[in-house]
Nucleic acid binder design. Structure first.
Length: 875
DNA sequence: GTTTCGACGTA
DNA sequence: CGTACGTCGAAACT
């Protein structure tokens, strides 16, 4: 606490404290899902936040070393030379920690050629002169010399960084028997092993203190060294130069030139959004409120609630009349209850109108709603669906702020208008508190939501590059309309087929479980990884496997490996049990999802991926099993609906490799696709130098894995693991592959390099994905980003192509008055429900539109199948 | 009651 | 040490 009203300056040695935290906290508990270690960051911030909360400094800074080199290593090159290189896992955390501090508004100080402690010493010295009370927090004992009546040192105890010991002058005297300014004398005599500074042999703290007390100063001691008797006296005389050198090196510099004076370090308000973003990236959850509390910030954005114009409540006819007079773009919000519209709000930049939805409103407003008059909306799909249920097909959808926000920043979790208002307008959308029965604050009305949408749209348009804007106009907005119809249509699923199968599986799982219990002599929950670990590694004493956060892995790959090395009947049963219960779970969730119309209506999340793909939820229909005979019985339950004749499935074969061929321009790969030969056979023939007819099955498997791996940024290590071959063989395979298909490697390399320069990748159609981490000094982050950046244009272009085809097919079917309709999209596959007598026409439309969706240097091959259920229609 | 983790389904 | 997703039950938290 600041005494006598003095301002308090807290200066912290970031490096030494983070380093201690790094070793104090188990890395397993502190790493993100993409493998970034965060234990040092977390430990430091946790300590730091407690410190700020307890000490309430008015001024604040954190200092870091720039490297191991400093003026001290130049004076004495052995300085700290005994220290092993700090682990890469630690080094990588420092830039991220500095990012966190920057977001928190805390100045980060570094100075080339100096150590963090010199910065602390300088700030402490200047702080005293400027009338501060100074708190120095460092894990380096040399900082004891800074302690005065005005400077307190907070030093981490052996228990860890969370326990800080306070060193005042009295506390230093108590511990070392001498005042703080003499501490470096003691240290010089004793030496500092951690800094590789040898002292006088046989001289410890006790002797050093005795000598300094006796002679009054180090200089006096050194001058009169011949007065010391015995072996230690001899030692001292032999090491006078070492002591002088130590004393020179452990003196902290108090006059380093810095960017900031203590007065400049006044605590600034933290950037709540930035802190939220970086903590989300580091997967810190509990830390967030603690930071906000310590820094007296509210978790809510500080943004003001900006008053929207008062909505004018009108009847539908008046609204229709007003709408007819408008010429510019309008924003529209339709509120929904029970899947149907309840109110309609419309806004210009200075007017807000709204009306209730009813039959009269439908009749009055339908002409405008269905017209091409431009409309700006937020998350239009549910609203489009509600209107269609009410018999109105919305036209003129010109902008969706949610889609635009996603196109601009596909990695961000912005999922509603409130998030976007915060991000793009830095304002707060008025929201009623749902926990209150009678909310104190009124939420925005439909018209006001539209008004905010309009303003967010304007802000987003300022940011949208032309290419991304065209993705919005030409791909995403039309796709939205097609998805709305697909969701409304749903897919017919047979309850009977599912429930029959579910019963079988339940019985089978039970039988397997009983048999497994018999083998191990007790009943355990086979679905519990924890209990399984007990059985496998303790009871059965099988070798421990890959580590996870909470123990040892029991996943299928691990169990298969175990089965190879230590065959045990329990392992096979466990795998079978897993398979049966998994299938049953899937069936159960599907059954629950069958609506009253006998169909499953999934929801496609258009903003659900970072690459441009769709995702599917409630239930997810994009991960229905297919790989084995058993699981195909689930697909067989997806049937053609009443009133329709058959299901059509259409999928792109090897679309990602085709895009790779196009983007790389590799002559060999292009020839492969133009030859009509099986791709992997063709590639195998080239790689292994044999005729296509001589490509054996293992050869084909290898090049197939390699080809697919390329798209994902596969390494020799990963390839060897996947194929269960030696790493050297995998390396050789990659070499042979690239010797024949060199342009592929060139392309992959150059595309990542380009992304590093631009900061983003781009699909063939201009969809962008930012990759800030490509220039990260942190290797884990950078390499993860490199693989994702390699994949993004390929996966993303494939997604674009499928969306374009989907939109064309959807509109062809409607324009030609056909009843057939698209039901599902599974990334590279479409499922269409074909009406009686429409097969030939529909097949033609699907084949042409998918084949022509993009003009690549290789053909887009489309496979079409037909059947009364999904499994039969697959080929 | 809610969140996280391990496991696993798809392209 | 292979990209992109969503969902489940159990465990761990509130």
């Amino acid at each position: 606490m600041s005494d006598s009203g003095k301002p308090t300056l807290l200066v912290v040695d970031g490096h030494s404290l983070a380093y201690r935290a790094f070793y104090a906290l188990p890395v397993d508990n502190f790493s993100t899902k993409d493998g970034q270690h965060t234990n040092g960051i977390y430990g430091f911030l946790s300590m730091f936040v407690n410190l700020v909360k307890a000490e309430k400094p008015t001024h604040l800074a954190v200092a870091f070393d720039t490297s191991r080199q400093s003026f001290r290593t130049r004076v004495y090159e052995e300085y700290k030379a005994n220290r092993s290189e700090s682990p890469a896992e630690f080094k990588g955390q420092i830039p991220l920690l500095q990012d966190c501090l920057a977001a928190m508004g805390v100045p980060v100080l570094t100075k080339e050629d100096f150590e963090a402690d010199d910065i602390l010493a300088t700030l402490a010295t200047q702080g005293i002169e400027s009338g501060f009370h100074v708190l120095v927090c460092s894990g380096d004992r040399d900082t004891i010399q800074l302690v005065t009546e005005d400077v307190t040192l907070l030093y981490p105890s052996v228990q860890g960084v969370s326990q800080l010991k306070r060193y005042t002058p009295d506390a230093v005297v108590e511990k070392y028997g001498l005042p703080p300014e003499n501490y470096p004398d003691i240290a010089a005599l004793v030496g500092e092993t951690s800094d590789n500074l040898p002292g006088v042999p046989k001289v410890g703290e006790k002797t050093a203190v005795k000598w300094i007390t006796q002679f009054g100063s180090l200089d006096a001691l050194l001058e009169r060294a011949d007065e010391i008797k015995g072996v230690v006296g001899g030692n001292l005389r032999e090491h006078l130069d070492d002591v002088r050198r130590n004393r020179q090196l452990n003196r902290l510099l108090r006059d380093v030139e810095l960017e900031y004076a203590p007065e400049d370090l006044l605590i600034r308000p933290l950037d709540t959004q930035a802190v939220r973003d970086i903590f989300a990236r580091l997967e810190f959850r509990t830390l967030l409120p603690r930071v906000f509390e310590a820094f007296d910030a509210t978790d809510e954005p500080p943004a003001p609630e900006v008053a929207a114009p008062e909505p004018q409540q009108t009847d539908a006819d008046s609204l229709a009349a007003w709408l007819a007079e408008q010429t510019g773009e309008l924003a529209l919000t339709v509120t929904i209850a029970g899947g149907l519209p309840t109110r309609v709000g419309v806004a210009t930049s200075d007017e807000v109108h709204e009306t209730a939805w009813n039959d009269a409103a439908r009749v009055a407003l339908a002409p405008w709603l269905e017209s091409d008059a431009a409309k700006i909306m937020t998350d239009a799909k549910p609203q489009v669906k509600a209107l269609r249920r009410a018999g109105v097909r919305l036209g003129g959808l010109a902008f969706d702020v949610l889609l635009a926000g996603w196109l601009l920043r596909p990695s961000l979790p912005d999922k509603n208008l409130a998030d976007l208002v915060d991000r793009y307008l830095d304002e707060k959308l008025p929201e009623a508190d749902p926990s209150q029965l009678v909310p104190e604050t009124e939420g925005a009305t439909p018209g006001q939501l539209a008004w905010f949408s309009l303003r967010v749209a304007e802000a987003e348009r300022d940011e949208l590059p032309a290419s991304v804007s065209s993705v919005l106009d030409d791909i995403e907005l039309p796709t939205l309309g097609a998805l709305a119809d697909m969701e409304l249509a749903g897919v017919s699923v047979s309850r009977d087929k599912l429930s029959g199968f579910s019963g079988e599986l339940a019985a089978r799982a039970d039988a397997i479980a009983q048999e497994a219990y018999g083998i191990i002599g007790r009943e355990v929950n086979l679905g519990s990884p924890k209990q399984l670990q007990e059985v496998l590694f303790e009871q059965l004493e099988l070798p421990k496997t890959r580590k996870t956060k909470t123990g040892y892995s029991t996943d299928a790959a691990v169990l298969a490996d175990l089965q190879d090395s230590h065959p045990h009947p329990f392992l096979g049963l466990l795998l079978q049990h897993r398979e049966a219960t998994k299938l049953r779970q899937i069936i159960e969730s599907l059954s629950v999802g069958i609506a009253d119309d006998g169909r499953i209506h999934t929801t496609y999340v258009q903003t659900g991926s970072q690459t441009g793909r769709l995702s599917s939820t409630d239930p997810n229909l994009q991960n229905i099993p297919i790989r084995n005979e058993e699981s195909r019985r689930i697909r067989a339950a997806f049937e053609v609906g009443a009133g329709y004749e058959t299901l059509l499935t259409a999928d792109y074969s090897q679309i990602e490799m085709r895009i790779m061929a196009h983007l790389s321009g590799d002559p060999g790969l292009i020839e492969a696709f133009n030859s009509g030969e099986d791709l992997h056979r063709f590639v195998g023939a080239r790689v292994f130098g044999v005729e296509p007819s001589e490509v054996t099955s293992p050869m084909r498997t290898k090049v197939k894995a390699m080809s697919y791996g390329l798209v994902y940024g596969l390494s020799a290590f990963g390839l060897s693991k996947q194929l269960r071959i030696e790493q050297s063989e995998a390396k050789q395979l990659m070499l042979e592959y690239f010797a024949r298909f060199g342009s592929v490697r060139d392309y992959l390399r150059s595309s990542v390099e380009q992304a590093r320069i631009d900061g983003y990748t781009e699909t063939i159609f201009g969809r962008r994905r930012p990759f800030p981490d490509l220039t990260s000094p942190n290797r884990v982050l950078r390499e993860n980003a490199e693989r994702a950046a390699l994949n993004a244009p390929i996966q993303g272009s494939a997604a674009d192509i499928m969306k374009i085809a989907l939109v064309e097919i959807h509109s062809d079917l409607r324009d030609q008055g056909l009843s057939s309709r698209v039901l599902l999209q599974i990334h590279d596959e479409l499922v269409v429900e074909v009406a009686t007598g429409e097969w030939d026409t529909v097949e033609q439309i699907v084949r042409t539109r998918m084949g022509d969706a993009a003009d690549l240097s290789v053909p887009l091959d489309v496979q079409i199948g037909r059947g009364s259920h999904w499994d039969e229609a697959a080929h």
